[in-house]
């Protein structure tokens, strides 16, 4: 499998109460296409910070990140977020004055990637694929359950036709049954559609289902051999 995201000597620290707090230290790792990764680690280990850096929401103090061999500095963070990645959050992060389908269309309207002409039909299809039928797709977000909202968020992440999807505790607010469904979707995306899924999680159920478990410890990433 070919590499999609390469982290090279990433360092991140901040000053807290007069002391420098090191979060990431010379972190290097290469993610491959079509795999489902989970990143584990104790609270405060820097999982979310790492995710925000590799998702282009923040910048490291030093080090390089390459997406398909091209430096993020060269691509630009806005463009990277718009065209190359998408993010799924624990709180779903959907816009509440839009319907489910409009939230999916939102991602499609921002990307420069080539998309089918009938975007609305594609959005409905995507939602339907994740169990959101048309009647529900036309509902406002707050009229959907948590699980349904997370499915909408996942549909949105796929709408812009990107290959790299990040998720931060995507099942944190969901019941076990829904959690399983979401994990199954991620696996399907990775294995059937060749997407790379990187999920930050505390959940063993999620990590056990992933292709590669990564442990963030002392500012560096280690592959879990188990």
């Amino acid at each position: 499998m070919s590499e999609i995201l390469k982290l090279e000597n990433i360092n991140y620290s901040y000053i807290d109460g007069g002391y420098q707090r090191v979060i990431l230290k010379d972190l290097s790792y290469t993610f491959e296409e079509g795999k489902f990764y989970t990143i584990l680690g104790p609270s405060g280990s820097g999982k979310t910070t790492l995710l925000s850096i590799i998702a282009g929401l923040d910048s490291a103090n030093s080090g390089n990140i390459y997406f398909k061999g091209e430096s993020l500095d060269k691509i630009g963070l806005y463009k990277y977020r718009r065209n190359d990645i998408s993010i799924v959050f624990q709180q779903y992060n959907l816009i509440n004055y839009l319907t489910a389908v409009e939230n999916v269309l939102l991602a499609m309207s921002e990307t420069d990637n080539e998309l089918p002409k009938d975007q609305k039909a594609v959005a409905y299809n995507l939602l339907e694929r994740f169990g959101i039928v048309k009647t529900k797709a036309d509902r406002m977000i707050n009229q959907l359950s948590g699980g349904e909202q997370q499915r909408v968020a996942i549909a949105r992440s796929l709408a812009s036709n990107v290959n790299l999807i990040f998720a931060d505790e995507p099942t944190g607010n969901l019941d076990t049954a829904t959690e399983k469904e979401i994990i199954a979707i991620f696996k399907e995306l990775a294995h059937e559609y060749g997407k790379t899924i990187i999920v930050v999680t505390h959940s063993d159920a999620v990590s056990e289902m992933s292709d590669q478990r990564l442990i963030l410890k002392d500012g560096a990433l280690f592959e879990d051999k188990q």
């Binding site: 806005y78 463009k79 816009i95 812009s160």
Partner: peptide, 13 residues
């Protein structure tokens, strides 16, 4: 703020 964050995360300028 939340909405702005979402829009920024999907790459809106």
């Amino acid at each position: 703020e939340y909405e702005i964050g979402v829009l920024l995360s999907v790459g809106a300028s």
